[in-house]
């Protein structure tokens, strides 16, 4: 069984799967477009919730949100099914392949054999596409990989039924209805408006307010947690911002790419200007990550380095507050 599916590498798994599945179904949509329309840009900081023994920091919304929002705004229906039985999960997947439907899966990363060991953590919200099967081997398009790959039946079952936080429960998804005509303008505007209100939300754990909250915490970490723990927290933060998937700068560059595409579709030059501005902000996020990594490495005891990082983050929060207010006005 083999569907006529084309693999394109992407920065982030969820946008990549969405873009690849939609391209297969005849909708030419780029990764940044999925990301922008699905309001993928986000910032979240909840110190009470711990992930890998560090406070939860996220540069993206909950898994599944981006594709669901993008699909809804484009008028596409996506079917999602979870399973309690691995056998039934495999049969359903094989039936899809027989019907020429490449299918998206939510999987756990820890048992993905083709990932380098260092990247295998218990992270359960990775996405990939199964586009065919030969003998007992599934043909896999993992959007963050350069080329297609394979997993055996047993290997695929393991990652589909990984346990822990956000366990996938065999979840598979695929578009079932596509509109005859897509209203790109309205979808883009909805996506942008949603992102602006997320980033400017009047709650301390979301958007620019959360960046300020995090900056405040960074100042306190060396004293309240000790340098070692503080540096572990910083390392986790850098990984959330720059690790495989963000396209660099905590998704800011993907978002700038989206704004550039949107400027052409909406015939709005202001968006092009704002895209340049977002690129500059993304560069500052990169500097921030680089500085934070140096703090991790030197294990410096000077309290000032943490204050310098916090100041940098505050500066970013101020820039983004201004940015999203302008973006809101521009559409």
């Amino acid at each position: 069984m083999n569907t006529n599916f084309t693999h394109h590498q992407s920065a982030h798994c969820e946008n990549g799967v969405a873009s690849n599945l939609l391209k297969f179904n005849g909708i030419d949509i780029s990764e940044p477009m999925v990301f922008g329309i699905g309001s993928g840009l986000f910032f979240f900081y909840l110190p009470l919730l711990k992930v890998n023994q560090a406070p939860a920091i996220s540069y993206r919304p909950m898994p599944g949100f981006i594709f669901n929002k993008a699909a809804k705004r484009l008028g596409i229906t996506v079917k999602r099914i979870k399973f309690s039985s691995p056998e039934k999960a495999q049969i359903a997947l094989e039936n899809n392949l027989k019907n020429n439907i490449p299918t998206g899966l939510q999987v756990g990363v820890y048992n993905l054999t083709y990932f380098p060991d260092e990247y295998r953590f218990h992270f359960n919200a990775h996405n990939l596409v199964v586009y065919g099967k030969t003998d007992n081997t599934f043909l896999i398009s993992d959007p963050v990989m350069e080329n297609v790959t394979t997993l055996t039946e047993a290997e695929l079952e393991k990652v589909r039924f990984a346990k822990g936080t956000l366990s996938p429960k065999g979840q598979m998804y695929y578009p079932t209805h596509l509109p005859s005509e897509i209203n790109w303008e309205s979808a883009i505007k909805k996506g942008i408006k949603n992102t602006c209100s997320d980033m400017l939300a009047p709650v301390p754990i979301v958007g620019v307010a959360a960046m300020r909250y995090l900056a405040k915490s960074i100042r306190k970490w060396p004293k309240s947690k000790g340098v070692k723990v503080a540096n572990h927290y910083l390392a986790q933060m850098i990984r959330m911002q720059e690790e495989i998937g963000t396209g660099g700068g905590g998704f800011r560059f993907i978002y700038a790419a989206f704004l550039q595409e949107a400027a052409i579709i909406l015939k709005n030059d202001k968006l092009k200007e704002l895209s340049f501005e977002m690129t500059q902000i993304g560069d500052l996020w990169r500097d921030f990550a680089l500085n934070a990594s140096r703090v991790c490495k030197n294990r410096s005891n000077v309290e000032d380095v943490y204050n310098t990082l916090a100041d940098q983050l505050l500066h970013l929060a101020n820039l983004e507050e201004k940015f999203f207010k302008e973006l809101k006005k521009a559409i």
Partner: peptide
């Protein structure tokens, strides 16, 4: 790869 990310990942692995 990028230096900043390598440092962060190594730090996590060390922990």
């Amino acid at each position: 790869g990028w230096e900043a990310k390598t440092i962060a990942l190594e730090s996590s692995i060390n922990t």
